[in-house]
């Protein structure tokens, strides 16, 4: 074979890669979480409404629950707030609001102003628990199954579409399966 055709072939492969690269360019910041199918990180945090009381991951075993990381400083959290509220109205899943890197008074004021969709809000003041969850931006949402395993994670703004296609089916499936 004519060896002078090799550069052209190599270049063709490169172009294919770049075409694919261009297609997936907008998803490149969307990192898969290594925590999927892993047990939920251990936490025991004060409750926002009553800081004297704490809630732990252990106490949430036995039911599906959603962990939604948010902060009053986070603009996108405000944007996804109606979706979380709508989901809360369905009463389909227990929702834990994880208020992180925030001042509690700001957080309480935020919930009063926009409405509180959370079954409970916990204070992760220094963001330690958010690091254990591998959170790097806000909002991030995790779905935990009754055995305490993370089954789904969404980075960024939650949309109703995601709730319908990713979260609700998972609740139904596993329930009928078990």
């Amino acid at each position: 074979m004519n060896s002078r055709i090799f550069p052209l072939l190599g270049f063709a492969v490169l172009v294919v890669l770049l075409v694919v690269g261009l297609k997936i360019a907008d998803q490149k910041t969307n990192l898969p979480s290594p925590l999927i199918d892993k047990p939920v990180p251990v936490f025991d945090l004060p409750v926002l409404a009553n800081p004297g009381q704490t809630m732990s991951a252990e106490s949430l075993l036995g039911k599906f629950y959603l962990v939604n990381f948010w902060g009053s400083w986070c603009v996108t959290c405000r944007a996804e707030h109606p979706v979380v509220t709508q989901l809360a109205r369905l009463n389909a899943v227990y929702i834990v609001g994880m208020n992180f890197r925030d001042e509690s008074e700001d957080a309480i004021a935020w919930l009063q102003r926009w409405g509180d969709p959370y079954d409970v809000s916990l204070i992760d003041y220094d963001g330690r628990v958010s690091i254990d969850f591998g959170v790097y931006a806000a909002p991030e949402t995790f779905l935990v199954d009754p055995s305490g395993t993370i089954v789904f994670k969404h980075l960024g703004q939650l949309t109703w579409d995601i709730v319908e296609t990713e979260i609700l089916p998972r609740l139904a499936n596993t329930e009928s399966g078990s």
């Binding site: 002078r4 550069p7 075409v19």
Partner: peptide, 16 residues
């Protein structure tokens, strides 16, 4: 990318 494909692809075809 299209430009790259034409310029580089064309010249390498010529080379081959």
């Amino acid at each position: 990318l299209a430009y790259l494909a034409v310029v580089v692809g064309g010249s390498l075809t010529l080379y081959a």
